[in-house]
Design a protein around this nucleic acid. Structure first.
Length: 371
DNA sequence: AATTCGGGGCA
DNA sequence: TGCCCAGAATT
């Protein structure tokens, strides 16, 4: 039987005396050696926490190392161009993180004397820093006793208390903040507690194939006792993801350079470079899509030639197939007008390699390379 | 409260 | 394939 609202908190009261000690003792023996656990530099920890948002540890590590090698201090990042920061972020996704981090670094240099702030109010004022990230920086860099709620902790709480409340709903999240705060209160070392509970979620209390028999707190776990570990946490079902087809123009000028444009500052893949094109409409051929989109977005007339390649790609809320066609501009170039981009450029393959492109575009660059 | 932001790891 | 990941910002 799932816990009801009435006996949930009493269960927490019974657990909490033993939870932190068992968890922390386990962590001190089992902790992974992660780069951001070797530093107390608040800037480095900040960078790591931004990169780790919705991104697994193994994915982040090489990006973290490269980023801090190029930008060892917040001043180095603040001085750099957004484009260079984006190039180092290329492939990591959620590019507004890089934009917010870059902008916030300039704020830290200008308004905070180059020191990452150590108060909740100041650090929450930085772009891209929400309640979790603010707490993580204050806890890991400054040793403050602040609870952390991330995907790992939500999953652990749902199981620990055998709670069926959907973890992806704000009301549940609010409840979880209260619970994790109570648990943290019993810890003698908040830094270790916060590292340990996320370590547990990442290594043992995983979404599938949980390793309960290795878990330091499985005897306290209400879902383990009830045999419901694999059934938790509950999430409300996601809606279906639409599949769009994109017509893309590969345009080469007389000098052999390719037409690329820089996407808008907001929205999907913000400020990354791409080849021009757009979404296919109902009852429209892909060739007609390319003609229409380039007229709408660039005010040019084109002839669409042979198909070059097609690329399938999956985003969180979108599946796309890029259909790339060799294309020729047949109207005067001085009439070209940017309506859906920040900038455009005629670029060689070498130049394009130095610019940040979305992952789905990498296959187009490889195609050009082997032509 | 719901949606929009990428891309990879892993079964 | 589908789910999840050291979430934040917008609507």
């Amino acid at each position: 039987m799932p816990a009801t609202k009435e006996d949930l908190l009493p269960a927490l009261e019974r657990l909490k005396a033993a939870f932190a000690n068992a968890l922390e003792a386990w962590y001190l023996q089992q902790a992974r050696d992660l780069p951001w656990r070797r530093t107390q530099d608040a800037y480095a920890i900040w960078v790591s926490e931004i990169m780790l948002q919705q991104t697994q540890v193994v994915t982040v590590i090489p990006y973290y190392e490269r980023f801090l090698t190029r930008f060892p201090t917040v001043e180095d990042l603040a001085k750099a161009s957004l484009e260079e920061a984006l190039k180092l972020w290329e492939g990591l996704g959620y590019y507004s993180r890089a934009k917010n981090l870059h902008q916030a670094a300039q704020v830290v240099v200008r308004d905070f004397g180059g020191v990452v702030p150590d108060t909740l109010e100041d650090i929450l004022s930085l772009n891209g820093v929400g309640r979790y990230t603010a707490g993580a920086i204050l806890s890991f860099a400054y040793g403050k006793r602040i609870p952390l709620l991330d995907g790992n902790v939500k999953r652990i709480l749902a199981r620990l208390l055998n709670d069926d409340a959907p973890i992806n709903q704000p009301a549940t999240e609010k409840k979880h903040w209260a619970w994790i705060s109570e648990l943290l209160d019993t810890s003698e070392n908040p830094y270790v507690f916060n590292q340990a509970i996320m370590e547990l979620g990442a290594t043992l209390c995983t979404p599938k194939l949980t390793k309960c028999l290795l878990c330091p707190v499985h005897e306290l776990c209400q879902a383990f006792k009830a045999g419901r570990v694999e059934a938790l946490p509950v999430k409300t079902p996601a809606k279906a993801v639409p599949h769009k087809h994109i017509g893309v123009a590969l345009i080469q000028n007389a000098d052999g350079l390719y037409f690329i444009q820089k996407r808008p500052e907001t929205g999907l893949l913000a400020s990354l470079w791409e080849f021009p094109g757009g979404k296919q409409e109902a009852d429209e051929s892909l060739e007609a899509t390319v003609v229409r989109e380039l007229k709408e977005e660039l005010n040019v007339d084109v002839n669409v030639g042979r198909h070059a390649l097609s690329i399938d790609h999956v985003y969180t809320h979108l599946k796309v197939t890029l259909h790339v066609y060799h294309t020729e501009i047949v109207s005067p170039l001085d009439a070209l007008e940017l309506k859906a981009a920040q900038a455009f450029k005629w670029a060689s393959l070498e130049e394009m390699r130095a610019l940040p492109f979305p992952k789905a575009n990498h296959a187009i660059l490889r195609y050009i390379e082997i032509q």
